[in-house]
């Protein structure tokens, strides 16, 4: 069916069905039938995606639920599957998230403010924007290598500590925060800024007291998404931490550490297959944390989008 045959159909008119059929090669009913078959195909694509998601969730729940109890959250890792818990990696993950937030929020939001409110559209600033877009596509293992060389070996003299991990994660999630914050800042109506400038405010005062409060919800949802990425990411931490068993919670920024996804990875590869159930139980905990964080981010975004003033 190309445009010419459709046009031919129109020219011939609706009443001369036999001529129309000859010219088009396929009858009206065939076309309708083909339409329906392909709709079924498109619906299938959506359904297979959703079925995959549910299969994944069920697989994890069935394997993991028998091991999931309160002790699982409060025990350290153990050689016996039924005594093993996730206290060590849970503490490590909290440290990583906390420190990553501490580093990422000022740098990411600062970059976005600079690019949107302070920078002229010079070649350097276009380069920065292009660079951030490309950084978002750099594989996470590469960040791991960078963190190993720059933070572990150069900055901390070979100490594979939790700050090195958080700094690496910061570089990894920074593009997410910058891009989300830029979008949030762009969404603030320029009339707000003009009003503040008209009252004699300088650029920083406008940003501080007008733009930032307005852009806050959009930035928050970007920050939460970035932090949930930092929680779920394991390849760079596998390179930075390289610890298999951690029976302690990191007590200071220079403590050794492991994180939840890395612990899951270690348990999946354990010789004793019973540890796969433990891994699944840890996955359930990880997914609950991540899905609720994503839920909060989406909730903030929707609430923000539905506001009338735009």
């Amino acid at each position: 069916m190309d445009h010419i045959s459709i046009q031919a159909e129109i020219r011939i008119g609706m009443n001369d069905i036999s001529t129309r059929t000859k010219i088009q090669g396929s009858s009206h009913s065939v076309r309708i039938w083909r339409d329906r078959v392909f709709v079924a195909g498109f619906v299938m694509a959506v359904l297979i995606g959703i079925a995959g998601l549910f299969a994944l969730m069920l697989d994890v729940l069935i394997d993991g639920l028998p091991f999931l109890d309160f002790q699982f959250l409060t025990n350290y890792s153990s050689w016996e599957p039924h005594k093993a818990g996730i206290l060590g990696p849970l503490g490590g993950t909290l440290w990583i998230v906390g420190l990553t937030a501490l580093f990422t929020i000022p740098i990411g939001v600062g970059t976005a403010i600079y690019l949107e409110e302070f920078a002229s559209k010079s070649r350097l600033n276009r380069l920065i924007e292009l660079n951030i877009a490309n950084l978002a596509g750099v594989p996470s293992v590469i960040y791991g290598l960078l963190g190993l060389a720059m933070f572990v070996q150069f900055l901390f003299n070979g100490s594979r500590n939790v700050t090195a991990g958080a700094l690496t994660m910061t570089l990894l999630v920074l593009p997410i925060v910058v891009i989300a914050s830029q979008e949030a800042i762009r969404a603030v109506p320029s009339s707000y800024r003009d009003a503040a400038y008209a009252m004699g405010a300088n650029r920083w005062q406008v940003v501080k007291s007008v733009v930032l409060p307005q852009a806050m919800p959009g930035m928050m949802s970007g920050i939460i998404l970035a932090l949930s990425r930092a929680i779920g990411e394991s390849a760079p931490i596998l390179i930075i931490s390289s610890l298999v068993v951690v029976a302690f919670i990191p007590t200071s920024p220079d403590s050794a550490f492991t994180v939840l996804p890395l612990q899951i990875f270690t348990w999946i590869g354990h010789q004793n297959p019973e540890f796969r159930g433990i891994a699944a139980a840890a996955i359930v905990v990880l997914l609950i944390v991540l899905l609720s964080m994503n839920g909060v981010a989406i909730w903030i975004r929707n609430k923000y989008q539905s506001r009338p003033e735009q």
């Binding site: 959506v46 995606g49 959703i50 995959g52 998601l53 299969a55 994944l56 697989d59 994890v60 394997d63 949930s228 929680i231 779920g232 990411e233 394991s234 390849a235 996804p261 890395l262 899951i264 990875f265 999946i268 796969r276 891994a279 699944a280 996955i283 990880l286 997914l287 991540l290 899905l291 994503n294 989406i298």
Partner: peptide, 24 residues
């Protein structure tokens, strides 16, 4: 309704997908 459900897939950690591939 459908779009957010599909987007959940993008937020699941890769280590979980690895587990799913290996055990399912």
């Amino acid at each position: 309704i459908l779009k957010p459900i599909l987007e959940v897939l993008a937020g699941i950690p890769t280590v979980v997908y690895g587990y799913f591939a290996l055990t399912f």
